[in-house]
Nucleic acid binder design. Structure first.
Lengths: 140, 140
DNA sequence: TCCAAGTCGCTAGCATGCTAATGACAACCT
DNA sequence: AGGTTGTCATTAGCATGCTAGCGACTTGGA
């Protein structure tokens, strides 16, 4: 009788905690990872652009960037062509965290879905994609 | 976004935002709902007991209870038999929020899963249950 | 009986997200 | 050219979660 939203909330909480724990061993917190994941694809982006790609608010990226700067993962540099823009660049530490973090996340994913068949994992992935599309295209 | 964890993070964020928006219309925030959901089942529980049932930390329930008290959803009363205990009791407002909140959550669930077949919804529910069991029984 | 240990709610302080307001800068439009 | 408008990052302040540490109260053993 538990509603699907409650199941989702619980699973999301456990996964988030486990992900934070796993990535913390490599100097990356769960809130920093989403920003890092964008910078790993393209370095030197501005907070606003990162926020747009993540579907997050700009101040979230700004504050996270400050903590990442303190953690030595990124550096801020002003854009010489447009002084309104601040660009975030990966430090060597931020760059080298990529592989171990990805491996840790893959291991967590395997652990969390250990009791699911490959077909069930595909169904889950498909369902999540559909839910995201539904919520994004519906009300924003 | 091939990463299952990333899909999960995104879906959880959208669902949480949508749930907060839907329940806010009835005076209940998303963080208050989990505490309410326990009190709706059994009134007069103590913060520690609620935290245990939710798998949350006690200070989380304590702080949430303070906001719920300010919102007029619950009242605090000291246990006459054990002065260490504080018991949380639903106010009429907290009690009457139950049905509309449940309806709003059910409507959100229908909306989010609108593009899923009933079989897919069952598979999703099953997968979430398995993931929760796996993460709970594994590490703590 | 009385004190040491256990239990409980609470506060402090942090991370992660948000919105609103601010100030700096760029671009556009007469 | 110069002022208006738009676009940035940032700060302030809130909600939601956490851990650590505190003080109050109970309990159990000497």
């Amino acid at each position: 009788m538990t509603d699907l939203l409650a199941l989702f909330t619980q699973a999301a909480k456990l996964l988030r905690e486990a992900a934070d724990e796993a990535m913390s061993h490599h100097g990356v917190r769960v809130g920093q990872h989403i920003v890092l994941s964008v910078l790993w694809e393209q370095d030197g982006l501005a907070p606003g652009e990162i926020a747009r790609r993540l579907g997050a608010a700009t101040p979230t990226v700004v504050n996270t960037a400050t903590r990442m700067e303190e953690a030595g993962l990124v550096t801020r540099r002003s854009d010489p062509a447009d002084a309104r823009l601040v660009r975030l660049y990966l430090t060597p530490r931020g760059r080298s965290a990529r592989d171990p973090v990805r491996q840790a996340r893959a291991a967590l994913e395997r652990r969390a879905t250990a009791t699911l068949t490959p077909a069930e994992q595909d169904h889950l992935r498909s369902a999540l994609t559909k839910i995201i599309a539904q919520l994004q295209d519906d009300q924003p």
